[in-house]
Design a protein around this nucleic acid. Structure first.
Length: 187
DNA sequence: TTTAGGATGTACT
DNA sequence: GTACATCCTAAAA
């Protein structure tokens, strides 16, 4: 994922995403109720950017997938900044460590500088300021329940790179407990 | 260190 | 009016 801005370029390698289906089988999706004005972009052609405003202060970005009219999208949940880390750090002053620059959907969107103006942008268009590049697939990918929703939590439609330090902190059934002994978050 | 509460646009009841 | 695909700040232990 790359964004070109007057102030610079930021590239992020996505490490965590969530799938949302609009086919009515997924009550957690914004598209579940149909093409509302906010979710209309999800029903458009694939490769478009669906940006929505959440909780009044955060923007989250999705990439529309599947045929037009289906309403399916992939939420970009987390990633690691590989280019323009300095600029990303400026955009995310609250991020104290590099790992937190894009850990979380709103943080990822902010680190990339994606805003409402980018809604509907074609991420496959080379001339677009927001582009999606295909990279080498990770060695291992894990799947599990989605985070931050209250419906259809059983669907294991969250996918992340196994062992990635930038994935969202998921609390299975309660407290996050400290860092598991085997996994080190730092290098 | 962990827990609680607040901000605020859009959609649904 | 309430809930939400969230994150940040403040307070307590």
């Amino acid at each position: 994922m790359v964004t070109d801005r007057p102030e610079g370029t930021v590239a992020v390698r996505l490490t965590e995403v969530e799938a949302y289906s609009g086919e009515g089988e997924d009550p957690a999706s914004h598209a579940h109720r149909g093409p509302t004005p906010r979710a209309a972009i999800m029903f458009g052609p694939p490769g478009r950017l669906y940006v929505y405003f959440s909780y009044g202060v955060h923007w989250c970005a999705n990439v529309v997938v599947g045929p037009a009219g289906r309403g399916s999208a992939v939420l970009l949940r987390a990633g690691e900044v590989v280019v323009g880390e300095d600029l990303a750090a400026v955009r995310r002053p609250s991020a104290r460590v590099a790992r937190d620059l894009a850990r979380g959907p709103a943080r990822l969107t902010a680190a990339l500088g994606i805003g409402p103006d980018d809604g509907g942008a074609d991420v496959l268009d080379p001339s677009s300021s927001v582009r999606l590049h295909a990279g080498a697939p990770p060695a291992a990918v894990s799947a599990g329940p989605r985070v931050g929703i209250s419906r259809a939590t059983e669907l294991p439609w969250r996918f992340w790179e196994t062992g990635a330090a930038s994935v969202s902190a998921f609390r299975p059934g309660g407290k996050p407990r400290r860092r598991p002994a085997g996994q080190t978050g730092t290098s």
